[in-house]
Design a protein around this nucleic acid. Structure first.
Length: 872
RNA sequence: GGGCGCAUAGCUCAGCUGGUUAGAGCACUUCGUUUACACCGAAGGGGUCCAGGGUUCGAAUCCUUGUGCGCCCACCA
């Protein structure tokens, strides 16, 4: 039997077909996997990409990692489910569409009206969503497309309404007036994390304010002042505290109260601040503490309100100028700092200046005690599950970040003043209010105009995709929800841990009283070669689709899996993909070589073939070690390390040595095909396309659902000896090649070689064909045992050149080395025993540390035992 | 202001709970190839592990201070 593969692997030619084959097989869907009832499930939800943008390399990294995990688990007999989906990204999407309409039709959303705008949004989405799904397929992602979800499709809308109602009925969701970050342009509130702060040069006005001079950057808010505040310890102003003062302003005199509050910094300005409760977060808090009234003077368009006299209707910035010039005329301005640097709050979408305003909004009360959560609040439970390690983080340090953030969390404002999104399921009629899944019967009910924060629906992602609430009745899970929830791992970028991860945890705890996933794996960002974020506007982005066309999806995947460690950013450039393309081609050619033999034997992958020579033992042993360490590292999410080990075995051991030897020592077909099969299975999660392609050339079954190789416990002493013996042969071959090169012996010229090696004659004799023929050009080889002459070293005489391999694998030297190591270990054991016996830390240090130290001692002893064995 | 991370070869990075001579890929130098693969092979050069101090028999690794980057959070009236 002989199999032919093309000389060069051209990925773009076959990848689409291979993906189609997988998809047709149905195995992306766990229901179709041929598994015993007892098989454990393994679920990942794909972080739904935002539908407005094309996928970037960050997405590709995410897909590569998640597909790697899923394929690895599938090969290991898990009931693997990876759920695809997309996110409606409410504000972002509406913005893109609004911009488009303004450009194409010259209309605003108010010109169109709610219905017409939503129609435009949906038709836009149809196009972009398709593109994203195509890109995802091209990466080779083995997602179960039959379970495709969208955060705003019908099923998710039902789930969201149900969730809202349950939280409303429980009193977790409430409506209240709060200071919010208001974007006057978007006409919407922004969550704290949607506000961006930018350093800017501004003017700082020192104004005369009754008996004080105080500094402000927003003199126009003076119209809304109801107090001034000083620090309670500030000796300069003690006697003013508690007084009511008449202050002269541009609209006449007004009264303020002087209060003492620790929020005031004595060192800033004059140590006195004016308090505008309705238009500043800090002032609002101060006002709450001191029961001060608020006075609203700025409306939702960012304009001065009717109560502002002649300034009414002006934008705040305009009013500022007008008021300052009036104040100057009245002699109320002391002086102005021109280059005061401050942080200006901006809308993350449109960059408008944020206006803090009191406003009616919907909130999730994170501190509200909830009966079904054992009278604990969402915040408490969400922190608890992390502390109890019901959810673990990779890397571990993000656990701290998560908990810190959680602890400082304020009530979450979930209403947004936009049209595209989940409309709030609340209806009003006069003073009546109704929350329900459907509109209430009867006339005159009007639904709340607002929609929900996009994270409300994506926070429900792990269970809304698995059929909640239909699959959840009387606190019992059924169907997909029972089978696949909680999911096993959430893989996402670390920047999203607060925005998304935390919300998923709270939502799942509320809905099901269980965690949404047990592990969080966080990847870093893919940066450009200068360490800058890739972005469209900078033009420094690398288009994944283009890279896939050029180098193949496998190469793109590998380039994003290797040299990329959890939680750390990576600088990326195209040549990283190129070298991986070279590797994929190498793997192809290894297979081509193995499969080109005339007498290939089909062997069962489970049966380890008989090793006939040292090289056979060595490579089979190396394969075992490789399988073991790769599996271990994949289990621990060390994807890059796993790939490195595998790469080293494939290229440096198998291709560079064993395949060359197989040209000299014949009849290795059974071993070669065995290794190839194992290798293809192990590589498959990393490079699914090329491995499946090779596999199909000699096998009818899909590689995708093969069995991951099992490995036996490795006899470390024996395998060490095999390695030592084989390394000797390698060293001799390399030494002879070097001698040729250094002494300019012509390659074509045949050599007579004599090796003197005391005590190693047998190994050398057994492997003389390799020494003669592995590109050393030895014509005639003699092996002598003559220790006296060469002082224990191995001497090789090639023609007229003498080579000495000193201190290498000489048994005498090796024994010395081992003895040294033994002495060292014995010393360590003594030290460790002393440490354990004498040190004060025993009994005082945490138990953990003491056991760790004891374990260390045990390990030393084990090592010593092994070495003693080896010496014999 | 609070917190986190990074600093190792020219470049991109590994280096787990301290243990022989600090590794890989790319780049570089030399040599080679009718052979599965030039998307190749062989050999080689290149590192005061950011700096100072400390702990230890032993430090790239642990502690401390400093310097330089990067990120997150809070936000200054």
């Amino acid at each position: 039997m002989k199999h032919e593969l093309d000389k060069i692997y051209i990925p773009s030619a076959g990848e689409l077909g291979t993906y189609e084959k997988w998809e047709k097989s149905g195995y992306f869907n766990p229901d179709n996997l041929d598994l015993p009832e007892s098989a454990k499930s393994y679920t990942i939800v794909l972080p739904p990409p935002n539908i407005t943008a094309k996928l970037h390399l960050g997405h590709s990294a995410m897909l590569a990692i998640e597909d790697l995990i899923i394929r690895y688990k599938r090969l290991n007999g898990f009931r693997t489910l990876w759920i695809p989906g997309t996110d409606h990204a409410a504000i972002a999407t509406q913005n893109v569409v609004e911009k488009k309409i303004l450009q194409e039709q010259g209309k605003t959303r108010h010109d169109l009206g709610r219905e017409a705008l939503l129609k435009e949004v949906w038709s836009f989405l149809e196009k972009t969503q398709g593109e994203i799904l195509t890109q995802t397929r091209r990466m080779g992602a083995s997602l179960d497309w039959s379970r495709l979800a969208f955060t705003l499709d019908e099923q998710r809308q039902n789930a969201v309404k149900r969730m809202f109602k349950e939280m409303y009925d429980e009193g977790v969701i409430y409506r209240g007036e709060r200071m919010v970050n208001w974007c006057p342009r978007c006409h919407s509130t922004l969550a704290d994390d949607e506000v961006e702060y930018k350093e800017e040069k501004a003017k700082l006005y020192w104004i005369k304010y009754g008996p004080f001079v105080l500094a402000t950057s927003r003199p126009e808010t003076k119209l809304g002042d109801t107090a001034v505040a000083v620090h309670p310890d500030d000796t300069r102003y003690q006697h003013f505290i508690g007084q009511e003062l008449d202050i002269e302003g541009v609209l006449g005199k007004f009264q303020v109260k002087v209060v003492a509050d620790k929020a005031v910094e004595m060192d800033f300005g004059s140590g006195v601040i004016k308090v505008t409760p309705s238009h500043s977060f800090i002032d609002n808090e101060i006002a709450e503490r001191h029961n001060l009234p608020g006075k609203k003077i700025i409306n939702e368009d960012g304009e001065m309100m009717a109560n502002c006299g002649k300034y009414a209707g002006m934008k705040t910035a305009v009013a500022r100028e007008a008021i300052v010039s009036d104040m100057q005329a009245m002699g109320l301005i002391d002086h102005i700092d021109e280059d005061y640097i401050h942080n200006s709050a901006r809308c993350y979408r449109c960059d408008s200046v944020i206006e803090p305003l009191p406003s009616e909004q919907w909130f999730i009360g994170v501190d509200k005690k909830i009966k079904r959560l054992g009278d604990k609040s969402l915040k408490e439970r969400a922190i608890e599950v992390a502390l109890e390690n019901k959810i673990t983080f990779t890397p571990d340090r993000f656990k701290k970040r998560y908990i810190d953030w959680m602890e400082n969390l304020h009530d979450w404002c979930i209403s947004r003043q936009i049209w595209f999104g989940h409309q709030i399921p609340v209806w009003y009629k006069d003073k009546e209010i109704y929350c329900g899944l459907e509109a209430p019967t009867g006339d005159g009910w009007k639904q709340d105009e607002d929609t929900l924060d996009t994270w409300f629906s994506s926070g429900m992602w792990t269970f809304s995709t698995l059929g909640w609430p239909e699959n959840y009745n009387d606190d019992k899970k059924t169907g997909d929800l029972a089978k696949f929830h909680p999911t096993q791992v959430l893989e996402t970028g670390y920047e999203i841990i607060t925005l998304w991860v935390s919300r998923m945890i709270m939502m799942s705890l509320f809905a099901l009283d269980e965690v949404p996933f047990s592990q969080v794996y966080l990847h870093g960002m893919v940066l450009d070669k200068d360490g800058k974020k890739m972005s469209k506007s900078k033009g420094n982005g690398i288009d994944p689709l283009e890279m896939i066309e050029k180098y193949g999806a496998d190469a793109v995947r590998l380039s994003l899996l290797m040299g990329f460690t959890p939680g750390n950013d990576t600088k990326f450039s195209e040549d990283r993909i190129e070298t991986k393309r070279n590797f994929v081609n190498k793997l192809w050619n290894i297979s081509r070589f193995v499969l080109s033999s005339d007498n290939l034997v089909e062997t069962d992958t489970k049966v380890i073939p008989q090793a006939k020579t040292l090289a056979d033992k060595w490579i089979l042993n190396a394969l075992q070690e490789t399988v073991a360490t790769v599996s271990k590292n994949l289990d621990e999410f060390n994807f890059s390390v796993a790939a490195d080990i595998l790469d080293n075995f494939t290229w440096n051991q198998l291709a560079d040595w064993y395949l060359e030897i197989s040209k000299i020592e014949k009849n290795k077909d059974d071993i070669l095909i065995y290794i190839l099969k194992q290798l293809l299975i192990i590589w498959h999660p990393f490079t699914p396309f090329v491995t499946e392609k090779i596999w199909e050339s000699f096998n009818d079954n899909l590689l995708m659902v093969e069995k991951w190789p099992q490995f036996e416990n490795i006899d470390t002493v024996n395998s060490k000896n095999i390695n030592l013996d084989f390394n000797l042969i390698q060293d001799i071959v390399v030494a002879i090649r070097n001698a040729r090169s250094l002494n300019k012996i012509e390659p074509a010229k045949k050599l007579q070689a004599v090796i003197y090696a005391h005590g190693l004659e047998k190994i050398l004799f057994d492997n003389q064909e390799i020494i003669k023929n592995l590109k050393t050009g030895i014509d005639n080889l003699e092996i002598h045992s003559d220790g006296d002459k060469i002082n224990g070293a191995i001497a090789i005489v090639c023609g007229s050149v003498e080579i000495y391999l000193l201190g290498a694998i000489d048994p005498q030297k090796e024994k010395e080395r081992l003895t040294k190591e033994k002495n060292n270990l014995e010393k360590l054991i003594t030290l460790q025993e002393q440490k354990l016996a004498n040190q004060e830390f025993v009994g005082r240090a945490p138990e953990k540390i003491v056991t760790a130290e004891k374990e260390k001692l045990e390990n030393y002893k084990k090592d010593l035992f092994k070495i003693n064995q080896a010496i014999i």
